[in-house]
Design a protein around this nucleic acid. Structure first.
Lengths: 235, 235
DNA sequence: GTCTATAAAGGGATAGAC
DNA sequence: GTCTATCCCTTTATAGAC
């Protein structure tokens, strides 16, 4: 309202510039000085928008999830069945990170360190995980399943998609075609599994497994991530 | 025969000293100078036994797997059924790495980088993975299963045990009791699953899944790891 | 020939002026 | 909000002592 380039605009500009540099020459190899210069700012000004280089990564995580939610919903609107919705959920995520393999490899290092704010499994990234599970939850929207299974399946799908991303890190095929193929095979498999879940013979041991996973805090309360994604906003 | 401390002895001495330091003060925080000094050697001499600090980690990986195989076989001898053998396979591994959480967190960083010789999924550590799958293969020794499933189940168990180790990295409970509990719940689940595999209704979709995993190179040829473990030797 | 001490360089982050 | 100047740490290179 007051100025053409608001604080948010400049922040987004720095973010996009940094991301381009990360993709072009790698995360570790890109210095904050370069980010600042390429953004047309001084070093100090860049640090005004992001407290640290890792803070830019935090914005990237947020960006990926928001974008995933956005694209997935767009795709869900046209999807006519569960299979198509799963295709949208998996492939839209892969689309978003397609150019970021190098960056993700560099970020992998933080994954196992629960103390680190950028750990993929740590408390500081819970919101991102919740958003991500929310996408798979919406993909299942009108599936009829017993409540406990219904709350767990999105978590399983999220875990699958994490595995798929790990696979992508090692996939040297052009455009990561191998990963796409694997995703395409994971989808009918997931469908089959949700069908099998209705068979009592299968359901009973699965219920036991879920109880174990719940007790080990490996399945977050569905209420938490189901509430998310109604806010909007962009990194 | 000629000298009381052979090259191998000294190498083992350096290795044990380094491991103690890694556990005590962390991998990144331990310098090769300290390793050398604590071993009673000069820096140059230490570098004679290990070309780099990471080379020591390579020896650690090898040590863990050899030790796992040794302890597992010891336990298998007394085990009377599959359940007990699975308990041995899972818990002996956890015993071995129990003191190494910090080290493993530090090493996690290499995991996602397929280029890195210490990546947990890269080509350079294939031998270690093969040895590890071999342990689970031996645990299943006299289970009757169709050949394709029989070759895949050890890989699934290996994957479970990798997940269990990831869980342990984040497990702050005393003596990682939570991880032990999770393992104890994973075991009957695994048993149940191998039983379910025999049910045609389940077997058919699983077979499809396996075909997908095979095509994606996620299931190594059983012949490779089954051949291993008959050599002996120690890091 | 090896080791140690130190200097130079690079880069993340901060302080204070404007 | 943006700048300049600076801090501080890590890594790498080197020079001189042993």
């Amino acid at each position: 309202m007051f100025k053409s380039t608001s604080k948010d605009d400049t922040r987004a500009h720095v973010f996009n510039t940094a991301l381009a540099l990360f993709r072009e020459k790698g995360f570790n190899e890109t210095t904050m000085r370069e980010v600042a210069k390429a953004s047309g700012l001084s070093l100090g000004a860049a640090y005004y928008y992001f407290r640290s280089k890792e803070d830019i990564v935090g914005a990237y995580y947020e960006h990926v999830q928001i974008e995933h939610l956005r694209r997935a919903r767009e795709g869900f609107a046209d999807a006519r069945n569960l299979k198509q919705r799963l295709e949208v959920a998996f492939h839209s995520k892969l689309d978003i990170i397609a150019d970021d393999r190098r960056l993700l490899v560099a970020l992998f290092r933080y994954g196992g360190d629960s103390e680190h704010p950028l750990s993929w499994f740590g408390p500081d990234t819970q919101r991102q995980r919740d958003l991500s599970m929310g996408v798979f939850d919406e993909a299942l929207s009108d599936e009829k399943l017993p409540a406990d299974l219904r709350d767990a399946v999105p978590v399983m799908l999220w875990a699958m998609h994490m595995g798929l991303m790990l696979y992508m890190l090692f996939d040297e095929s052009p455009q990561q075609q191998q990963t796409r193929k694997l995703a395409d095979q994971a989808i009918p498999l997931s469908l089959q599994m949700t069908k099998l879940l209705r068979v009592p013979l299968v359901r009973t041991p699965i219920r036991k497994a879920l109880a174990a996973l719940l007790e080990a805090d490996l399945i977050p309360p569905a209420a938490r991530w189901r509430a998310l994604g109604t806010e909007g906003g962009e990194a």
